[in-house]
């Protein structure tokens, strides 16, 4: 199953030295290297160059190559609240996805293990939302959360909310949307580690005076750490850069703008390409540093 690609410790056996140095290996890597250079390194260099451009002194709206590093200072000064909000939203969404996703993965991977048919079905249900466009699903949530929608109707009927108020456009709606959209990315890697967990180890822990809670803390959780790692990274990274959930057309408002929305606006609306490029690079650097620190702390370097 493809999900196992995310999980488990590196099990690659040591290759014989002679085969590792073989020029054929290098030759076989060529298409991959070519692809990376063309579609990753080149745009990255282009992005760095764009981020340092200065406005053309003659034609308004045009930019010329320069070494205008002040772009970075300007965007940070202007957009720091959105940057912090992005990190906060993404962290919250990752936390909620973990809190919902781990029990779900545990249920499918361990509780349903004696019933393989139901297990496969449950797994399909986790993936099923992907068959419908992510935009449509997010729009559907907008409908559900809208002022005329059932959620507001119910909450105002029981007096928990003033009538006519709205859920869309709030922090809650955006974090909810992010959590909802990224839960499968949390569930699948955790499922992959739990489905191969040897239940006899849990029995051994039980036999050695480990209560269910202790067994979970000392055996189940450490043995599924690789899946939790992959899951949180796969959720946090795209959530931090997401611009659909927080946009005004979907679940957000001007109060919930994330860094992704700012980048989108700078590229497509304001056409301030250097600012957008600088923001993209800042986001990238921020995520890289955060992920590296996280992986280092978790002690699972073999994931990187």
């Amino acid at each position: 199953m493809a999900f196992t690609a995310f999980s488990g410790p590196a099990t690659a056996a040591a290759e014989p030295a002679a085969r590792r140095r073989s020029p054929i290996a290098l030759f076989l890597l060529l298409p991959g290297i070519f692809y990376l250079v063309l579609f990753f390194v080149t745009p990255l260099i282009s992005l760095v160059i764009t981020s340092l451009q200065a406005p053309d002194p003659l034609i308004f709206g045009q930019y010329v190559n320069a070494f205008n590093w002040q772009n970075y200072v300007t965007v940070l000064e202007t957009y720091w609240p959105q940057a912090i909000r992005s990190g906060g939203y993404a962290a919250l969404a990752t936390l909620f996805a973990l809190l919902i996703g781990f029990p779900l993965a545990y249920f499918i991977g361990i509780t349903l293990r004696p019933y393989p048919l139901i297990q496969s079905l449950a797994l399909v249900l986790v993936i099923a939302p992907f068959f419908i466009s992510f935009l449509l699903r997010t729009l559907a949530w907008k409908q559900i959360f809208s002022t005329e929608g059932p959620v507001v109707g119910l909450l105002s009927a029981i007096g928990a909310m003033p009538a006519g108020s709205s859920i869309t456009g709030t922090d809650f709606a955006v974090v909810f949307g992010l959590t909802y959209n990224f839960i499968p990315f949390m569930v699948l890697p955790i499922y992959a580690t739990l489905v191969s967990l040897d239940l006899r180890l849990l029995e051994a822990s039980n036999d050695l005076y480990g209560s269910p809670a202790t067994t979970f803390r000392t055996v189940t959780l450490p043995l599924s750490a690789a899946g939790v790692m992959s899951g949180t990274l796969l959720t946090f990274i795209p959530a931090a850069g997401d611009y659909i959930n927080a946009s005004r057309e979907f679940l957000g408002s001007t109060e919930t703008t994330m860094i992704g929305n700012v980048i989108e606006a700078n590229f497509l609306v304001l056409q301030n390409f250097p600012a957008a490029a600088a923001l993209s690079l800042i986001l990238m650097a921020f995520i890289l540093v955060l992920v590296a620190a996280y992986v280092k702390r978790s002690g699972t370097e073999d994931l990187l």
Partner: peptide
């Protein structure tokens, strides 16, 4: 306490 046939040693 049990000595399991599969040993069931904690791998981590």
């Amino acid at each position: 306490n049990t000595v399991f046939q599969s040993y069931a040693l904690f791998p981590h």
